[in-house]
Nucleic acid binder design. Structure first.
Lengths: 217, 217
DNA sequence: TAAATTACTGACCGTAAGGTTAGCGCAATC
DNA sequence: GATTGCGCTAACCTTACGGTCAGTAATTTA
């Protein structure tokens, strides 16, 4: 805990910088987050940042990498013995949980996604990375629904692709509501239940469920 | 079309500036859009911008006002003789259409919404304005659903508030999909149909509808 | 037609940004 | 125990920003 630099403290200062940078990039965006401010918050000199990372852009990329880490859920091995219904529920739960836990990062991602101008970007671009991640999650969902439909657990009213899009859209929308418009989360559970009533067939495993699924006039 | 300024050309140059500013603010955000670049694109001197608007912030506000104009839909008078079912459909259609027509503005709004940090803002803030607009739209929807439920046109499986949240969430999610992730719009129609099957009771006015609403096992 | 006003510009200013450089103190290597 | 190199900083450089100002040619007012 002294001012004597060592191999190990180098790593620590690097981390400190990444933490400060994450915070600032997330709350202000790339351009409004200044290197001086990052340095101040990380309690190091600005020059040290440029010693660790050769440009602001490189620092940014490092931050992104770090934020993206928790996304790599090894879902396949995590929830193998559950049936399709429960696996799907768990997948949705993971999504909601992730957004809750990493709200800052999600905001950050969305901001970047929104800003990056349409099309024409290298395949290694940030937008592309996120799209791939999202696609993977989505594919997992499509597979689950397909298998669920084969076993009669999922409704066939929509094909799996459409059902997944529907599911994800509503989840994303809920996310937008809470994140952007700051709607109270009151109706959240209710809505998830409705969602489930759309993708699943009638519940075999009973749970606290007020509505009985299908209303007619 | 000469270089002679006149009362009328003042208005024209002002418009030119607003157009350029809209474009740049939308594509780059507030901070990355520089006054010099706006001036260049509007083909006027930077000083003229400061003659029309006393600061960058003021220019920005003027741009916002302009972008917000098309939002004021006088829906009430537009679709009075339709029944609740058709009115709701029309309301959804308007939303989708708006997002399609003003994608740039919507991106812009979202970016702002995302950036403005949580809470603590004057009630006249931009975020607040948009939230009010959104609330109005939402209330319209809630009212329609309530009336629809009374007349048996809308399903009672969800209370009107929750149903509206559900509807809007999915719409927003679809929007995010198309806007952020650039998912093909293929499944769009299918999903809207599903949405309708959730909020409405069984269709009295028949249309091309493959699924029969309720599947069991 | 002289004075005042309007619409406009080029040159300029202070500030803050991203980035560089010269060099410091400490730790390990020989 | 001198030398090498790592971790780090203060001070500096260049560039681009938002914004100002003095001035000018045309138009309106008198």
């Amino acid at each position: 805990m002294s001012a004597t630099p060592s191999r190990q403290e180098s790593q620590e200062s690097r981390d400190e910088i990444l933490r400060a940078a994450s915070r600032l990039f997330a709350s202000r965006g790339f351009h409004e987050a200044s290197m001086s401010e990052i340095a101040r918050q990380a309690r190091v000199s600005k020059a040290l940042i440029f010693w660790h990372f050769k440009s602001k852009e490189e620092l940014f990329v490092a931050v992104i990498k770090r934020l993206l880490e928790p996304f790599s859920i090894d879902f396949a091995t995590e929830a193998q013995e559950l049936d399709e219904r429960e696996q799907l529920k768990r997948l949705i739960e993971l999504y909601v949980q992730f957004v809750r836990d990493y709200t800052g990062s999600v905001r950050f991602f969305l901001t970047r996604l929104l800003r990056d101008d349409p099309e024409q970007q290298g395949p290694a671009s940030f937008t592309e990375q996120i799209r791939v991640l999202y696609e993977n999650y989505r594919n997992l969902m499509v597979d689950l629904i397909k298998r669920g439909q084969e076993k009669g657990v999922c409704s066939r009213r929509l094909d799996a692709e459409t059902a997944a899009t529907f599911l994800l859209s509503t989840l994303n929308g809920l996310l937008v509501d809470v994140l952007f418009l700051r709607t109270p989360e009151a109706s959240f559970g209710n809505i998830l239940a409705t969602l489930e009533s759309v993708v699943f067939t009638q519940a075999p495993t009973a749970s606290a469920d007020p509505g009985t699924g299908c209303a007619n006039g």
